Simulated assay, not measured.
Amino acid sequence: LNLDDKKGFDGRTLLLLTGWTDYAFSSDNLAASQSGKSLFLPKLQVKNKRGEWQTIIDSIGISVGRPQTLVVDLTGKFLSDSREVRIVTNFKTFWDKIAVGTSKQTEVKTTELKPAQANLRERGFSEEIKHGEMIAANYDKVLNDGRWKYFSGAFTKLGAVNRLLEAVDDVFVISKTGDELTLSFDALPELPANRKYTFLLFADGYSKEMDINSGSPDAVFPLPFKQMKKYPYAANEQFPMSEEKRRIYDEYTTRTVKGFLPRI
């Protein structure tokens, strides 16, 4: 990308990248590893004073699963008068729109909202709609034709699950394929005409796939946890189960599901 019209401009410069990433699954990663290859996240490079490309950001992140916009702050990061930038990765990424923002930062007030209600229910699967290589979900059409496999094991019981979502604490809502977690929040006061709300959803958790080359792909357990070095974790690591966590899991993890696949 050549941001030549910004040459000499040293003010606030944001790169706005809208697209989506078709990320690899475990079998893809295994095949790449056996071929001596490995994935690396998108890194951003600019030209230095010798005219060479130099990495200034090791990872700008990825837009996973659906079109999203990544914001990359380039303020003060250019290494020469050049305003050429490039993104280097071997992830399969589709960029739909790239823009540059130079507006000044306005005053921002952050308010954290806890869900007034959080409920887990069985819903089914949204119809898939293909847009070229991208697959989107049609939420208005639900399919219950058993098209997805599911793990054997203990899952969170249906109903209110607010207690499990209060903090990042290795206490999880364990949902199976076809489940839906619905959240509702108390209404916020009306803003003056020159202000507006922007809503960001913070979610912290793990997704587990049933690829045959994934870790324990036939069962829910073992549970992941924040400090684990890898998954499945080694024998010298264990889930940090306290008496309070055990009591909560015993109360909520009561929905037993038996998968239709034999154990691996």
Rank of each mutant, 00 (worst) to 15 (best):
F125M: 11
I60M: 03
T21A: 14
F185E: 04
T93A: 00
N2K: 08
Y139A: 07
V71A: 08
E52I: 03
P115R: 13
L17P: 00
F260C: 09
S35W: 15
K37F: 12
G159I: 15
L39V: 02
E244D: 13
F260S: 13
A118R: 05
V88S: 02
I129T: 05
R163N: 05
K226I: 14
L1A: 05
F260Y: 12
A160C: 00
D81S: 08
S63G: 13
D169F: 03
S59C: 09
P224L: 15
L158G: 01
G215K: 08
A160Y: 00
L39D: 04
L17T: 05
P115N: 07
F239D: 07
M134N: 04
A193N: 09
A118I: 06
N236M: 09
I212M: 00
V100I: 13
F151D: 07
D140W: 05
A234L: 13
A32C: 12
A193S: 10
D169N: 10
S184F: 15
S26N: 00
P115I: 06
E190Y: 08
T156W: 06
E244Y: 08
K92E: 14
R147T: 01
P224S: 14
F185N: 03
E84F: 00
N119R: 15
K6H: 06
K176L: 04
L15V: 13
E84Q: 01
F94C: 11
G36E: 07
E52N: 04
P232I: 15
F9R: 04
S126L: 08
K130L: 12
E52S: 07
D140M: 11
D28P: 09
Q45Y: 05
L200D: 06
E166T: 09
K229C: 12
S38D: 13
K97M: 06
D96W: 01
L191H: 01
K208T: 11
Q238D: 15
K258C: 05
I264T: 02
T13H: 03
A193M: 11
I212P: 01
R83F: 14
L70Y: 08
Q34M: 09
T102P: 04
L183A: 10
R86E: 00
Y150E: 01
D186V: 03
E122Y: 10
D58R: 00
A219E: 15
F172I: 07
V257L: 12
G11T: 03
K114L: 09
K47W: 06
T254E: 14
L113A: 11
K208N: 10
K141N: 08
Q227D: 15
D5H: 14
M134Y: 02
L44N: 03
I57M: 11
S38Y: 11
Q34P: 10
K77G: 03
M228L: 12
